[in-house]
Amino acid sequence: MTETAAITVPSDPRYLAVIRELTAAMAGAWGMSDAGKDDVKLAVDEACANVIKHAYRGDVSGRIVVKYFPGASFEVVIEDDGIKARPENIRGRDLDDVRPGGLGIHFIKRTFDVFKFDGRKKKGNRLRLVRHRRAEDADQGR
């Protein structure tokens, strides 16, 4: 599978806006509904914010690579060279337990049907996110 777009940015929160722009543009070109496009933009933003926060622990000198594979499904791969994530420890807060934090993972998982770390990457993380075509996406721009 060949990506049709990829972006590499520093692990600095100021570049999240750039990732959001490209993500929305790629989702739109794939034919995603406007609501889906907003959801995907937020979910990819949250995943990249997690890379900055957890993989790089706020160090802005790292790099984040985001690759887009718009095929039968809309797939996004996010790579970093930071600290390995422990998928078994990744969970959001109970939505009824109102406190700051713990929402990002919920936004990612409500948007993407597949949320999976590729354990074969030796250094850092490779997160694969896949959103299958939904009824509201059908025939848009295809």
């Binding site: 937020l42 914010a49 700051p100 990002g104």
Partner: peptide, 16 residues
């Protein structure tokens, strides 16, 4: 035009 979980967390903290 946009808010993410860090923005929401800010308001939850403010409310508390």
């Amino acid at each position: 035009s946009y808010i993410d979980s860090s923005g929401i967390a800010t308001f939850v903290e403010g409310l508390k």
